[in-house]
Nucleic acid binder design. Structure first.
Lengths: 143, 143
DNA sequence: ACGAATTACGTGCGTCCGCACACAGTAGGA
DNA sequence: TCCTACTGTGTGCGGACGCACGTAATTCGT
């Protein structure tokens, strides 16, 4: 009774996620970084030019739209983003990166990059990392 | 500014996890299956011969030891497992699969397997599935 | 043999999270 | 111009989750 490859793959995703995520979280918060959810939102905002509608942000980020709404509240309270009305559509609103938000994101980036690099570099050869990344992106594009 | 492969890989794990897990959850519960956490515990118990110490169970399952303790409570209340003292060590206790628990696990298995097969089969070729599984297991073994 | 350190486990508590719902705004047909 | 369907958003609520701690049992050094 051998396990199908798809099941082995899914089990691998589940396990790697549950093993690496807490380590990364600890390491980053120990170094005074931002919470992962904050960083994720700031990063996505930054790479989108600093301004995004809520629903768009919800799609790009790993969190639910609902959750994003609350995190943007927190970020706004911390002065890292600013809510802004959409003149073309009264329902929607933008999250806009403030200069300080951009600065904080830039400052936090190396901590995350180093953590990931370290945690995955320890486990896989460069070639395997590349192969894994390609396969995962292939799967995501087919989503 | 190209993203390192390790970061691409980690982002892929994060995204695939967040996309597939809810789908799988919905699909399974819609078909009257067990909660994923229940299934995970039952499966791990079954493949270990039906009896495992709590801490061992915590290590094998994707959940924290703390969480496992509570889930075993729920499973025991549902009659699917039974708590049992360890005669050789008064601190530890066993979770033992009941016949009904074993039956429920067996009955639920095809639902999960089909769901995973479907969700990953749609996204990756058989060869890619195998390659992905191998890479993830390689990473986990190095953990 | 006895106390300190360690291990296995359960639980109180606070956080994170998303579903279901409510509400305001928009689009489109008659 | 209404009236209806739909869309984008925020929020109440309850569940899932794990950390920190407490407790009981075992191990180990002396």
């Amino acid at each position: 009774m051998s396990t199908p490859d798809s099941v082995r793959a899914w089990a691998g995703v589940l396990r790697l996620h549950s093993q690496v995520l807490p380590l990364l979280d600890r390491e980053v918060t120990a170094q005074g970084g931002l919470p992962l959810s904050w960083y994720d939102v700031l990063l996505e905002l930054a790479s989108a030019g600093g301004r995004l509608r809520m629903s768009e942000l919800g799609k790009r980020v790993v969190l639910s739209r609902t959750r994003v709404s609350r995190i943007v509240d927190e970020l706004a309270a911390a002065g890292l983003v600013q809510r802004e009305a959409n003149p073309d559509d009264g329902r929607s609103s933008f999250a806009v990166l403030t200069p300080e938000g951009r600065a904080r994101q830039r400052a936090a980036a190396p901590v995350y990059l180093r953590g990931i690099e370290q945690e995955l570099g320890r486990r896989l050869s460069p070639g395997s990392q590349r192969a894994l990344a390609d396969l995962l992106e292939e799967a995501l594009d087919a989503g």
